[in-house]
Nucleic acid binder design. Structure first.
Lengths: 252, 252
DNA sequence: CCTTGACTCTGACGTTACGTCATCCTTTAC
DNA sequence: GTAAAGGATGACGTAACGTCAGAGTCAAGG
């Protein structure tokens, strides 16, 4: 249970804002003390987060209310849409930054900019269109999902490759993980490494020792990858890299 | 000389907005016809651009007015400030995107997020903290045995660290993507590539030119990586590889 | 036990940046 | 010469809070 000021500070909004949200019934605290103090729960915080996401994208508060209160509201789906819209907004900002840069360059060379050139990134219509689409989509959620179909196709295309790799990867990595205590030069581990390389060669591309070493580096370097891979154990990524290096050394 | 609707469409604002700006004496057309029609010049457009820049950053209209009307107003200086602020805003957005991603992940794994974790990107103070942290890190960059510490460091990275890494990557890749049209040898792109390499060196291991080239190959060759990376644009992976190769060539 | 300072409450009016009519006048195209 | 499109001027509406005012609440310290 959090008091109003705590919540305000956590979320970076004013107390008055929370009062307002209570008043318009957008976000009402789970409970109220006998003295009338508002008390917020973690659930309330989740809703507040949702509200702020929608706000950032440009929805009005009453729209947000009706979206969040709909019984079929899907938080996960909403979040994915949020991400898309936020990235669009980011692109818009990037365009604006380019415009500023162009303006600066033009100013330096004492040139004159094209009229439309001056306002790139300001036009919000793209974003608005997307918002409308989102609202429409959500409203007709039980209609046909044409938009999703295209996404699925792309996802599906890779899904085959993915699950193939994934299961092979899991198999090999589990084996390796189970033998970590024997060190990266362990015979069974080295065999598994070789199999892994062969698998890549068979299914994707010629995995030269050089590339293979790079792959090992990648396991450590790419945060998304590392995170996935470290579920096989503490320090699994560096261990794997080391094992790959030993494997490649022994090829000579 | 442009009529009001033309200007509105060029800049992506409403006619009413221009009326309003005229009324509050923020932007008054150079001339008016006998019938009372507003006529805007290129100079007026420049001022409008300025206004919109300031607005995007969050200034109030009367503040903008007093800024633009000050006799010592330096457009070039202002633009440079704009750029900085816009980039900060972009970072804030990137953070929000990360927060959305984290929320999604937590939702998938049915985890519960930390209370403050939920609101990253919403209040600006976080940004400052992160910047301080980065500055601190950089200051201590000249400590001892960085390379050998790499593995240990990685092992102790927490969620925050990963977020930082991811956002740095996103930042650099976004920048590169936004300048793809200038070709892989573009100066800014090359600078970003250098930064990226430095970043790997700082956080993981000494990234030699050889390894770096290998990474470039992997971006193209490895389907999983390509998939992730191509969200930055069509053919982003091959483009990146080419840019890396150019970068490495120039090191000799 | 009482005080004090930080926090909270509920109105209620103010503010910013336009949106939205309504009503009327110009200009342009056929 | 007439309609459609665009422009002008009030005037009121609105969204999302900000900003007091006046009063109660709570936790710590003297």
């Amino acid at each position: 249970m959090f008091k109003i000021k705590e919540v305000a500070e956590m979320a970076g909004v004013s107390v008055r804002t929370l009062h307002h949200y209570d008043h318009i019934e957008l976000l009402q605290p789970e409970s109220v003390t006998t003295a009338g103090y508002r008390l917020y729960t973690h659930k309330n915080l989740e809703r507040l987060q949702q509200i702020l996401f929608f706000k950032e994208i440009g929805f009005a508060l009453d729209e947000i209310k009706s979206i969040l209160d709909r019984p079929d509201f899907d938080r996960q789906r909403a979040l994915r849409t949020h991400k898309k819209l936020l990235m669009e907004k980011k692109e818009r900002l990037e365009k604006m930054i380019l415009t500023v840069e162009n303006t600066l360059r033009a100013l330096e060379r004492d040139e004159r900019m094209e009229n439309e050139e001056m306002f790139k990134g300001f036009n919000m219509e793209d974003i608005k269109k997307h918002q409308e689409k989102y609202a429409h989509e959500a409203r007709e959620k039980y209609g046909k999902e044409i938009v999703e179909q295209s996404e699925k196709r792309v996802a599906h295309y890779n899904q085959n490759d993915w699950s193939g790799i994934q299961s092979k990867m899991n198999e090999l990595f589990s084996l390796i993980a189970s033998r970590m205590k024997f060190g990266p030069a362990d015979q069974d581990i080295q065999t598994a490494i070789g199999e892994w390389r062969q698998f890549i060669t068979d299914h994707f591309y010629e995995c030269t020792p050089e590339i293979f070493r790079g792959l090992g580096e990648l396991y450590v370097a790419d945060p998304r990858f590392t995170k996935n891979i470290n579920k096989f154990g503490e320090n699994f990524a560096p261990f794997l890299r080391e094992a790959i290096n030993i494997y490649c050394d022994n090829l000579k």
